[in-house]
Design a protein around this nucleic acid. Sequence first.
DNA 1: GCAAAAGTGTTTGGCATACACCCATGA
DNA 2: TCATGGGTGTATGCCAAACACTTTTGC
Lengths: 222, 222
Amino acid sequence: MFPRHIKFAALAADAVALSFIEGVLNVRLITTQVPAFKGKRALPGALIRPHETADQTVARVLAEKAGIHASYIEQVYTFSRVDRDRRGRVVSVAYIALLTPTELTKVAEREEHTAIWVPVASANRLAYDHDEILAAAVARLQAKVEYTDIIRHLLPKACTLTELQEAYETILKRKLDKRNFRKKLLAQGVLKKTGKHTSGGSFRPAELYAFVPSKGGIIDLI
Amino acid sequence: MFPRHIKFAALAADAVALSFIEGVLNVRLITTQVPAFKGKRALPGALIRPHETADQTVARVLAEKAGIHASYIEQVYTFSRVDRDRRGRVVSVAYIALLTPTELTKVAEREEHTAIWVPVASANRLAYDHDEILAAAVARLQAKVEYTDIIRHLLPKACTLTELQEAYETILKRKLDKRNFRKKLLAQGVLKKTGKHTSGGSFRPAELYAFVPSKGGIIDLI
DNA sequence: GCAAAAGTGTTTGGCATACACCCATGA
DNA sequence: TCATGGGTGTATGCCAAACACTTTTGC
């Protein structure tokens, strides 16, 4: 082990957990109790324990502090500004976590959780440098939505092409052309018809598609 | 500050410093003296000091342990495997650093440096998880070479299109078509003629191009 | 039959690819 | 004049973009 007199920066992991709620991208926030930011909203985070990887810390903090189990977790960036935590020197490894609607329904709303879902657009003036971390996570999501099928981790097992398009439009913050969108997505071969259809509307039922099992060949860590 | 009894994972920064030496991509390695890996090659790295950002740690470690000053430094990924350092719990923020030939000539070869340049292809069986870190850094370089002008940080102020093409080919590990390469690069508008030409060969002199000052609009952190 | 959303094809322009010869120089 | 690397243009295919009407359903 290292000499005991060496001072380390402390190491934490923070999670940007995102999910669609009624078509709006929401982020899971807690209310901090630390004196410096008392009452402010913050991303759920915790110090990395000696026996944990950063990934494991994120999974733990999401479960313990936010009542969440996310199927998709990805490291985004490590924030190390010296004054980012007023309590002392804390470096934070930031993660993005994505929840499908199914996972969203399983969010434990235990009373000890002060966690809430907040639309990303209204999540500002957060504690620490969490505005910056949130922005980085959303930027990562936007970038990856363009060249991977990451969006599957925010959507139900089966959904219509219209729902899919709306999800893309929400994340990318721009309108897409319906015919080109469909052509492109179907050409990618990541979707297959389920044979089922929506029902209940006073209009033509929509074909329900499912993501085919991931090839696993998606480049990460870039 | 945090209660004193809390145990932290220690935090380090490691640098993958890359430069072209005679057309071959080389990485700067040191020889570790720590008992667990004694004599093995490793990336230069150091613990992050309480008053430093990770970026600053990298700049310091490159200067102190590798005699290097790099114009370009970018964070790649944070490695947190529990057993990655046999001495104890150390999480490492990995960076890529790029040196131009000019910076390469300024590398301080002081005798206390055990640092050497090693072709990336022969840099394996490194200490810790540095094989993995090196691979991640090279992957990042390959990815960014495709959609940014990051390669400018590995090249001299002025170079020929052939040299530029060879640099791309070395990094991407594939051959490119000369005419298409030139069309594409010149169309991007990041190069301008210097008006100067190479000389000395028994063949037609080549036009020397320079990178125009960066637009600064390159997306980072993705 | 009408309101509402689902679904569908064609045209166009730009960009990546493939490919082969002439040019300028020094020896 | 020859050997060497520098430099150029055209044809093709694919993919992204633009764009409007028909279909199916419930009421």
